[in-house]
Design a protein around this nucleic acid. Structure first.
Lengths: 218, 218, 218, 218
DNA sequence: CATGAATGAGTTTTCATTCAT
DNA sequence: GATGAATGAAAACTCATTCAT
């Protein structure tokens, strides 16, 4: 009816975008009907491309991982060795805040396996270089980096809607501290009370707007 | 099931505990039926104490906040000034890992208002004392502390089921780094690859066991 | 607890009144809990006096029938023979509008049996006297009277909340017509359009206020 | 059950018919499950066409009103002027007895607005013609007609299950009386005691069969 | 390929009734 | 006798998934 052969791939992409949007709002509780509506296709089309809700949710993760990997590659290609880790963390957070997709899209998804492997290798290099260059304390491991990314992701996901300065400050504070030396002046302004009040209120508002899934993250 | 009129308060508590348990596993998608079953009461009893699913979920937060506050008070009472912040963070994470309740139970809940206020005052004192005593870098603010607690909570929630050593290591690493001086040897063993493999596998297993809500957090 | 022996009869009466009130609003869909609350007693007390919801509903009818019978007796005692039927119909409608109880309280309730018998006898006399006195056409039977009372009840129940003039006019119109002679000037003002608009709006408002039981009666 | 996509409109109609049937028996307490079963569709299909129980109940009214309007039009087209009112009342009652739908389907439903307006115009004409032709007393108004129809509806609803002769007799009696002249011999046999006993018993039986909603109307 | 009507299992919520205190 | 907490069957409603068109 709407151009038969024209472009199945186009539809697939639209569904994926719609799903990412819904996922950002409702987490894994996203509704298939809502995804279809937002994508402007019938529910059946969603199921043609993704055989189940679970498959769709997992599929959302793929572009997320690919962006993460692409970011790591470009950091490796372009950034000075000792700063790569910091730049990657900042870029990771930035991408997260921009796309809003995280939630259930996790490193444990089967599809993420190869990405995870390559990413670990790259991050391993960043960490090694950071330690050598004095940007990271000597006992910092790649696994510490994963833990850090996880916490950063959670904070970004929670606060980006209210005041991005919160996570920006946090990242600078932690990165600077992880050097292991005396504190430097940070690149981001200090975290203050007003920001947190804004944060709490933003979440309260969101909960009122959508009582079905009252607050993601945390 | 379970005698009648035994004690309304007792039943209320059992429902709350059951709800906390379910919430830890399924997040806000917890089922009322499941809560009732686990509490050993009829579904009607759940509704007698909490008029709706939403009300129950909000109610879960209260003991969580109270524990947090109680912890802060006892830390203030018993711990040496300069170590209070570190002890509080450790205790907070410990409690989280033990009770598993977090998720939707957030600082923005209306019921949390008074707790939030008092808690902020206490944490403000911890931070001040920490800075004076050299346990925290001079530019660390109470709001930085909140951000840190948030990230810690996310990490604990995600990893406590797999290997608590992950979050323990992370906390020690960050606390030590936040001193601002040269790194010390940490109280927790380094974060290594095996731990993360265990983590990823644990999450994968959980997702297979319960495809409905495949993995909380992150 | 609230005065043990004091007065069970008092409680029974309060429950009955509360039930009548709830019944007037919600018909047979009245809630036991609501009745108990309005009566100011525990739900158990309601069940002590009336073993089931059905029994309570049937019990509501009794005072209704008794009032009807009392009215008939007093009409027989005090009113001029030929006007008894008209006076009874007017009084019946008046009582209905005042108490609001009708709905499920029906002539077929077992408890109503003896009342029904006596009432039929009295109304039979009223009808007979009315025919003799020229107030009712010769072919009007006691059963016609019952049918008429039924229709009057339905109209009163429907319109008394909006404009009682509607049923008053209707009664006068029909009573006058049933004489069988040329029309006389009626005791009530004519039924006009504004009254019906008020009626329709009143019902619409009620339906919005209480969507649970949107409008009793036909 | 019942093929798929057969025809959405067909299913909608079947649901509506089933709902009308259930409504005739149980009033506004009709069960959605029962409606679905009777319509031979899944419960989800009922909800696809009518988003809530309330919406379904309101929808039942539409065909009812449309039938009423269609009847009025055909009466206007085919019947002799002075008899139109009487014919309409009889047809109205007949339709009511046949379809059984009334109860919550009321003139105050928003959807009924346009029908109500046109119907009032038509009935206004019938009344006017009836007065001119001597079939109605001169002071009879269109609003009196509405009141009369309401009472007729209540009586039909209550008695059609037992003995239709009751409402038939009542209608003839009232229509004849409303002429304002000397009584004529009625087209329907007189209302007698046996009919009322049958009526009371029928209601008693119904109440026993279905204690949930013991007796509609009245 | 796309569509969206149909399905029904599953979930939330209500409420008449029971019974320990 | 009175109370109200407890119960669970029943009803309303949701939504992932299927499949005829």
């Amino acid at each position: 009816m709407s151009g038969q052969r024209v472009d199945a791939a186009r539809n697939r992409k639209r569904v994926l975008e719609a799903a990412a949007h819904e996922h950002a709002r409702h987490g894994s509780a996203l509704g298939m009907q809502d995804v279809a509506r937002r994508a402007g296709v019938g529910i059946g089309t969603v199921y043609r491309h993704f055989p189940s809700r679970q498959a769709l949710i997992e599929a959302i993760a793929t572009p997320f991982f690919e962006r993460g990997l692409a970011l790591a590659r470009s950091v490796q290609a372009d950034a000075p060795e000792s700063e790569r880790f910091a730049i990657y963390v900042r870029g990771f957070a930035q991408a997260l805040a921009a796309t809003g997709v995280y939630g259930q899209c996790r490193w444990d998804a089967p599809a993420a396996e190869p990405v995870r492997v390559e990413l670990r290798a790259l991050i391993g290099e960043f960490v090694e270089a950071g330690r050598s260059g004095g940007a990271l304390r000597p006992d910092f491991t790649p696994e510490d980096a994963f833990a850090l990314l996880w916490t950063v992701a959670a904070l970004v996901e929670a606060t980006s809607g209210a005041d991005p300065a919160i996570w920006q400050r946090h990242i600078e504070l932690v990165l600077d501290s992880l050097r292991g030396g005396p504190p430097r002046t940070l690149r981001a302004s200090p975290n203050d009370r007003a920001q947190w009040d804004a944060f709490v209120n933003a979440r309260k508002d969101a909960a009122e707007r959508d009582p079905a899934d009252p607050g993601r993250a945390a």
